[in-house]
Design a binder for these strands. Structure first.
Lengths: 338, 338
DNA sequence: CTGAAAGCGCTTACAG
DNA sequence: CTGAAAGCGCTTACAG
């Protein structure tokens, strides 16, 4: 359609310049060209632009899920929302890839890093298994940032939440309320999130001189059901509080507690992690750690774009802060001391 | 990289032909070229292909959400999963667009239908508000299929679930169990899903000679909370069963019932809609309508691709069947007759 | 079955 | 500040 835009009586070069608003164009010419563009409803062809400029303004988002169950976790919805929103604003397009099966991963890693479709890729990852995909990305030289803490973090860019400190805060708060026998339902130990949040739990206990009891540590997998099962096991222990590594597991745990005719926080205090909006509906108000999930998405896109624009840069690790949201499920000092 | 592939001693045309595996190539040549491709790890450039063939193998998925709350509905996760999976299999890339705000819609509709990036677009839609976007798509001439029933369906392709019949089945089942005072918590009347499911409810009552009572019809918005509130209002009526237009609302309604110290199905029978895996965790097993959500995604992609490949085709409306899943929440004839 | 050549619609040094 | 020209890396009739 460049030809059509020559109705303005200028060269294609000039049209291209006003489309990409270059600095040095005489106002008269610019106006004239813009008018013609308006009238014709001209849209530059994306493929031609990409081919000529070697930049597609498309970034990929890879969600490597071993189990599609993970996908029902609201965390991902919010993450996608943050990323999509940011892309819209800066006029990038987001291509979406779900790598649930091993096959998909192979397929993905063989196909797109090098075909010029994508300027860069975002990958959510905290499993050991994903390491291969990340390595492929690094070797391909395509700009990439991982969301979450990858198992091997050296030399790679990531944005994450400070899971360890967040867990530390949550457990410290329980301790400050006077609880002594604090259990935790962790995330999967195969994931960095799981590991980091457990580490925060342990550090909080240790710094307060509370012995770490392995019987009070049960591994979950972030599902409601695993929270329920874990809690059932924990109930045979003598405990007064629980730090669940996700709201979803906390809700499951609370169900287990109720099934045994116990109450939160009267009998057992509970703190979750995530501050999922949809969890607010539970009848007990959950004390939890709020993660800025949408922010994570935004930061990741911004970092990726900066990587795309200024080629090499030293690896950046962005850690976003969390916030302890105190509600009723952890009880309070007063109640405990009565 | 074509040049590099000339190592095989053939023309670029020929290389292109083996890459796109054309029928008539001598085996010798094909093998030779393929070997070189293997060795060099050659990947055809996507943009160049798109430009030359006028086909990008990228389709867009637009989710036009007025409220981001909708996004926490597991339905969409599954839908995305189905679409993404199918795209992977047929070697298409899915570009993802969230049009939450009015601005986004404008932005989207002005930008991409004509820039050649997308071969076609999928749009989830059942709100009157989305009609404008759909019209834009139609006018732009880009192949598109809508997921759900659009308000104006003439001349446009869509794939949907037979909501009316599904609701009819659900309510008929309640009637067959002997319930007479059956209420419904509907979806938003601004959405075709809401309208269709309500229509099924009404038809079931009418065909069985049960008068339709407006006091037994309360509008919800598919959120848990709206189910809760609606149920609270319904509890002041004399009723023995409820058809909720979504599982999420059914769960909310059950919470309300329990809060009033009543029980499901002993005091009130409940049927939901969706058969969301994550709803299985509720302590009452929900009788519900199963929607083949992943299938919907798959069909939509397949239809879109066929549209892309064979230009004009008469409008297709695909209606997928649902299935009534009977669990305990609707009670049973025996129990009622005791 | 294969090659030479045109063309897809832009961007971007290079001159001026 | 603007134009002429090359080039981005493929595909696809057109001959042969």
């Amino acid at each position: 359609l460049e030809d059509i835009a020559e109705k303005a009586g200028v060269s294609r070069s000039t049209v291209s310049r006003v489309v990409n608003d270059f600095p040095f164009i005489s106002d008269g010419v610019r106006d004239r060209v813009q008018k013609v563009i308006q009238e014709t409803g001209y849209q530059p062809n994306a493929a031609a632009r990409t081919l000529a400029s070697q930049r597609s303004r498309i970034i990929g988002l890879i969600l490597p899920f071993s189990s599609s169950a993970l996908f029902t976790n609201p965390y991902y919805s919010l993450l996608i929302q943050g990323i999509s929103q940011t892309c819209n604003q800066i006029d990038y397009t987001m291509a979406f890839f779900l790598a649930s099966a091993k096959d998909d991963k192979k397929h993905i890693s063989s196909r797109f890093p090098n075909n010029g479709l994508l300027d860069g890729v975002l990958i959510q990852s905290e499993l050991q298994d994903d390491q291969e995909l990340i390595t492929t990305l690094r070797d391909s030289g395509i700009p990439h940032v991982v969301i979450g803490r990858p198992f091997q973090a050296e030399g790679i860019n990531f944005v994450n939440v400070d899971n360890e400190n967040a867990a530390y805060d949550a457990v410290s708060h329980l301790i400050s309320l006077g609880y002594k026998r604090i259990a935790t339902i962790t995330g999967p130990m195969a994931s960095t999130v799981g590991i980091d949040r457990k580490a925060g739990y342990i550090r909080a206990l240790q710094e307060n001189g509370i012995p770490v009891n392995q019987d009070l540590i049960v591994e979950g997998d972030f599902t409601d059901n695993s929270g329920y099962e874990a809690m059932l096991r924990l109930l045979s222990e003598n405990l007064d509080a629980v730090f669940a590594a996700s709201d979803v597991m906390a809700i499951g745990a609370i169900r287990a507690i109720k099934d045994k005719n116990l109450e939160v926080p009267r009998d057992i205090a509970m703190v979750g992690f995530d501050d999922m909006p949809s969890m607010q509906i539970s009848d007990t108000d959950l004390t939890t750690i709020r993660q800025p999930i949408i922010q994570i998405g935004r930061k990741a896109v911004e970092l990726l774009v900066s990587l795309i624009e200024n080629e090499n840069q030293s690896p950046v690790h962005i850690l976003l802060d969390t916030e302890l949201i105190i509600r009723s499920s952890c009880g309070s000092l007063k109640i405990k001391s009565v």
